[in-house]
Structures are given as structure tokens and as C-alpha cells.
């Protein structure tokens, strides 16, 4: 077990390093830079020579390789660099913005899970075929709604027409309501789809007939047998959905004018604020790796057929546990 964990941590470090390097190369390849965007034009009217001087002060005169090694060294010592645009260390920027994004993302995810489970359970327990059909088509609808459109529509309806939630201001809870919903709906869709499908698949397994032949009711079968067996594929998807969550947060924070990681990411992209972007990519990769490690560690808890063998660097997923791809980042 310890061996397995160390192996996974080594993998995680590798993933982080690759993510960092790829971002570094891509960002360097872009034309223009943050200095140009911040100081060119405007009232300052700096000459190219002066711009070059500012660049020197950021250490931009050194070769790319040296810059790269510097950057890596700094990251390893916990220094994520300096935001050219905001003029503060990136760590300060992240510390100020992370909490609000974490709250938004975790609430959004929780609501998405509730939505997905609700759709799946109601559609499999309902005696009405029409309701089942309606619920089965809901995920496809949800998945095709663009986040920005949903956000704007929700503001239109709930804030402007019905005047239930203020657009700006209001209590913390009120200000979270619409953003959380905007974020949750598109996330819930793939989750619900996978859940509905795996519940359908598990429900026709022979062991379900055996449980019914024991005299169990449909809800007994669903809660005690089908649910746990159907959770595994959904869990895998949940790990993958973290990416959607980050992308969704960027749009949601912009639409609702909230501060947060999504917002500084957007600003950093607009301003080519390389250090901030590097940090955001690193943070997202870290989130991915951690969430997927947790997911992988949860498999054996849910399904005794899956064992985490020491000496084996992969979780050994045996036949029977249909696990979608992409879980081990």
C-alpha cells in the first residue's frame, strides 16, 4: 500500500513537471509580452529602450533555458513569481482568490451530484414511463447548454424579471445561488448520463433477479444492491469532471463578476501575465492529480474485487468493474 502510494506520488510529480514545462514553452512562444501590454501606449509613452530596461528588471534578458531553470527552482522553493499586471507576488494573488473559487467549485460540484443522483434515482424508480423518458432526455439538454448563456439567462429571469436575487451585493448565500447553479447544471449532465446508464446496466444483471426472488422490493434492490454497483463508473467520471469545473468557474466568475481564480485566469490571459498563468496551470494540474488519486483509492473501498497491490504501480482493476478511461492522470 505504501509502495503504491509512493508510486502514485512520483507519477503526480511527473505530471506536474510536464504540465509546467509545456505551459512554459507555449507561453514563451506567444508574440508580445506582459511588459508591452502593460506599459505600451497610455500616458507613459515609454521608448523601446525603456521597455527593454523594464524587461531586464524582470530577468527577461537571460536565455530561455536559464529562465526555465530559474522558474523551476523558484517553484520548488515556493516562489511562484511576480504578477506583472497586479504588481504583487503570485502567491499573494492566489491566496486572495482561491477561497472564493473553492467555495464556488465545491458547492457547484455538490449541487451537480445531487442533481445527477436525483435524476437517476427518480427515473429508475418512477412507475411512469413518460416521466422516465423526460428525465432520460434531461442530461442531453443540460450538456448542450453553454455556461455563459445559462448564467445570463438565470440573471435575466431571477434578478431582473422576478427580482428574487440581487445582481450585485446581497448576502453571501444570495450571491452564491445563481453562480453555483450555473456551474452545477453542465457538470451534472455527464454525471447523470453515466449514472442512469450504469443503473440500467446493473439492473439487468442476474444477481438483481436473485435479490428480487428473495422477495425484495424495487427500492430495496436499488438502494442496497444497484446503487453501490452503479457508483463506480460515475466516480470515474467525477474525477474527470474536475476539468469541466475549472473551465466552468472561469466563465461563471466572469459572467457574475465574482473574484476568484477563474477571474484572475481570464485577466492573466488577456494580459499575458505569464507567471500567473503558470501558477494557475500548476494549481489545476495539482487538483487533477489529487482528485484522481482519491478516486483511485476509493475504488477498492467500493468494490472488493479491485485491489491496490503493493509492488504493482497500478490499481489492479479486474474485470467486472467497468472503469472508464482517463482516471489515472
Amino acid at each position: 500500500m505504501a509502495r503504491y502510494l509512493w508510486g502514485r506520488i512520483a507519477q503526480a510529480v511527473l505530471v506536474l513537471w510536464i504540465a509546467f514545462t509545456v505551459t512554459f514553452v507555449l507561453l514563451q512562444a506567444l508574440p508580445g509580452d506582459a511588459v508591452l501590454i502593460k506599459f505600451q501606449g497610455g500616458d507613459l509613452n515609454l521608448t523601446p529602450a525603456q521597455l527593454e530596461e523594464i524587461r531586464l528588471s524582470y530577468g527577461a534578458d537571460e536565455s530561455l533555458l536559464v529562465q526555465y531553470l530559474h522558474a523551476i527552482g523558484n517553484v520548488l522553493t515556493g516562489d511562484l513569481g511576480y504578477s506583472v499586471q497586479a504588481g504583487v507576488p503570485v502567491t499573494t494573488l492566489l491566496a486572495a482568490n482561491l477561497p472564493s473559487t473553492l467555495v464556488l467549485a465545491s458547492l457547484g460540484f455538490a449541487v451537480a451530484v445531487v442533481l445527477a443522483v436525483g435524476i437517476a434515482l427518480v427515473s429508475s424508480l418512477t412507475p411512469f414511463a413518460w416521466l422516465r423518458n423526460v428525465l432520460h432526455s434531461v442530461p442531453s439538454l443540460f450538456i448542450s447548454i453553454p455556461t455563459f448563456w445559462l448564467g445570463i439567462t438565470l440573471i435575466q429571469i431571477f434578478s431582473f424579471r422576478l427580482k428574487l436575487v440581487p445582481v450585485i451585493g446581497g448576502s453571501t448565500l444570495e450571491s452564491l445561488l445563481l453562480p453555483v447553479l450555473t456551474l452545477a447544471v453542465p457538470i451534472s449532465a455527464p454525471l447523470a448520463q453515466v449514472l442512469v446508464r450504469s443503473i440500467d446496466e446493473v439492473s439487468v444483471q442476474p444477481f438483481v433477479s436473485v435479490v428480487r426472488a428473495k422477495g425484495a422490493s424495487p427500492s430495496w434492490v436499488l438502494w442496497r444492491h444497484v446503487a453501490r454497483n452503479a457508483t463506480l463508473p460515475a466516480l470515474t467520471i467525477a474525477g474527470v469532471l474536475l476539468g469541466e469545473l475549472i473551465a466552468g468557474a472561469v466563465v461563471t466568475e466572469t459572467v457574475f463578476g465574482r473574484t476568484g481564480i477563474g477571474r484572475i485566469t481570464q485577466d492573466a490571459v488577456n494580459n499575458q501575465d505569464v507567471a500567473v498563468l503558470q501558477a494557475v496551470v500548476l494549481l489545476s494540474a495539482l487538483g487533477y492529480v489529487v482528485v484522481n488519486l482519491i478516486v483511485d483509492l476509493l475504488y477498492p473501498v467500493l468494490d472488493p474485487r479491485i485491489t491496490v497491490r503493493s509492488g504493482d504501480r497500478r490499481a489492479n482493476r479486474r474485470a467486472g468493474a467497468r472503469v472508464a478511461t482517463g482516471a489515472s492522470a
Binding site: 442476474p206 433477479s209 435479490v211 426472488a213 422477495g215 422490493s217 424495487p218 454497483n229 474485487r305 467486472g320
Partner: peptide
């Protein structure tokens, strides 16, 4: 109906299924 049959299943009539490999819940 289903509810009345439930009282019979397991007590009066029970089932031994075909495929022992897939007929037990794998996670219990």
C-alpha cells in the same frame, strides 16, 4: 401485483439461477 408476490418469493417459491458467477452481488 408486485407487492403481494414479494411475500411469496423466498418463502413459498425460491430461485436457483443459471450462472453462479453473475448471480451474487459482487460488492457484498
Amino acid at each position: 401485483n408486485e407487492r403481494r408476490l414479494r411475500a411469496v418469493r423466498g418463502t413459498q417459491v425460491s430461485l436457483v439461477p443459471q450462472d453462479p458467477v453473475s448471480s451474487l452481488d459482487p460488492v457484498q
